[in-house]
Design a protein around this nucleic acid. Sequence first.
DNA 1: GTTCATGCAAATTGTTTGCACTAAT
DNA 2: ATTAGTGCAAACAATTTGCATGAAC
Lengths: 135, 135
Amino acid sequence: MKQDPAQALRDTGVRVTRQREALLKVLTEAEDHPDAAELHRRARTLDDSLSLATVYRTLSVLEREGVVLRLALENGGARYEVADAPHHDHIVDLDSGQITEFRSEKIEQLQREIAAELGYDIVHHRMELYCRKKT
Amino acid sequence: MKQDPAQALRDTGVRVTRQREALLKVLTEAEDHPDAAELHRRARTLDDSLSLATVYRTLSVLEREGVVLRLALENGGARYEVADAPHHDHIVDLDSGQITEFRSEKIEQLQREIAAELGYDIVHHRMELYCRKKT
DNA sequence: GTTCATGCAAATTGTTTGCACTAAT
DNA sequence: ATTAGTGCAAACAATTTGCATGAAC
């Protein structure tokens, strides 16, 4: 499933550059949901010339191409993930900041029904549960 | 239900100023979901000395007091609504930008179950359906 | 050889803050 | 009188952009 970054880039038709490979590799290997600055920090270890501007430009290209997803959580900057997994939503642990992914076909179905009743088709949606560990 | 802005302010224990009354009145009467700049524009017609800084400060106070809700949609700045209606979520029309409110107890119930399974209590959540009118 | 991507620094946008002043209590 | 709230301008953080250089095709 997790294919080579260079190949993924080639598949989208954009130019394969050192910088893009570094960024995509780092994002593919990330277990968490890093923001642009953090991706910059990590990818710099693979290509120390990489600038933050390029990180933003690349993320924006890859988002347009459907390769990465941008999460806009409540506070702070955007966070990113590779779009290789099936669609899912997020639980944010308010204390640790940890993000857990989940998926509910039942909820998605209900969402579709609600939208349809109002004459809408859902293009995409976002759902985040801001939680605290049960005591 | 929609009580007098001055009273609402008094109830929260903060000082009742011309500026706050103007802002809260404008927000209470808003049918849409304005952002800070738009609220500033509208409230200025009631109090032309009102500054944008005060708009932000007041919104932040009122959010802390539970009188207003801040929506952080996908793009652009935050949008606001008074917290007088029961909890609901939003459908965003991608073409017109129009925001429709909806509510699904079924979905909320499922959300709680999902969170509980992972050992979490939901503190709050957000769900937005980005839609296009059915053709 | 063209065209696209990059680095850098400067610009933008949305929001926050320090400070001296004014108004609500 | 005391304390909280305000306007203004400057400070900020996240992100974007113009431009000259450099690398991918």
